[in-house]
Simulated scan of single mutants.
Amino acid sequence: MRKRIIPVRNFSKYSDFSVAAERLKNHPRHRDYLDQVPQSQLEKLHIILRDHMQGLSLEDSLASFRLDPEEDLNKLDDEELARKKGQMDTLFERNRKRTDDPDFVYDLEVEFDKPNQEKCSWDDESDDEF
């Protein structure tokens, strides 16, 4: 099989990664080769390319794709926030239990223990009292 090189044209560090990925995927010369590649993967490659053009290292660029539960999402710009929300949606769908799953439990209650967690009076009340 012959190796195919697909150039990325008209892309700068100011380009919109999602538009560039869509344009590449729908290009008549590349459509057959990229048909099975998810749009999100092409977007991720364009983000890494853009980050490189802006001087970020590969490690820093890849770190931006990891979800950090302690990260303050209020400090992100709109583009970064949309990307993080997309990642959270993907993770949610991957972990979501549906009624037809074999290990589905209807009214599952989970106790989360945290060290140094303060107790509240309403935590001790039972739902059965109502």
Rank of each mutant, 00 (worst) to 15 (best):
M1V: 03
M1K: 06
K3T: 02
P7R: 08
V8Y: 09
S12G: 04
K13V: 00
K13A: 07
K13T: 08
Y14R: 06
S15A: 14
S15N: 02
F17I: 08
V19S: 04
E22D: 03
L24T: 00
L24D: 05
K25S: 10
N26P: 05
H27W: 02
P28A: 11
R31Y: 04
R31S: 03
R31L: 05
R31H: 13
Y33E: 05
L34H: 02
L34S: 06
D35G: 01
D35L: 06
V37L: 02
V37C: 12
V37G: 03
S40P: 05
S40H: 06
L42T: 01
L42A: 03
I48E: 05
L49H: 06
L49R: 07
L49T: 01
R50Y: 00
D51K: 04
M53Y: 08
M53I: 07
G55A: 06
L56T: 02
L58N: 12
E59K: 01
D60I: 00
D60L: 05
L62T: 06
S64L: 11
F65N: 10
L67T: 07
D68P: 05
P69E: 00
P69D: 00
E70K: 10
E70S: 10
D72C: 07
L73P: 03
N74V: 06
N74D: 07
N74E: 02
N74H: 09
D77F: 01
D77T: 03
E79N: 12
E80T: 15
E80I: 08
A82N: 14
A82T: 14
R83T: 08
K85R: 15
K85G: 03
M88I: 15
M88R: 10
T90E: 15
L91P: 08
F92G: 01
E93C: 03
R94L: 13
N95L: 14
R98K: 12
T99K: 15
D100S: 09
P102Q: 14
D103V: 08
F104W: 10
V105L: 06
D107W: 09
E109S: 10
E109W: 01
E111S: 12
E111Y: 12
E111A: 11
F112V: 11
D113M: 12
K114H: 15
P115W: 12
E118G: 13
K119H: 01
W122K: 11
D124Q: 10
E125C: 12
D127Q: 11
D128R: 03
E129V: 15
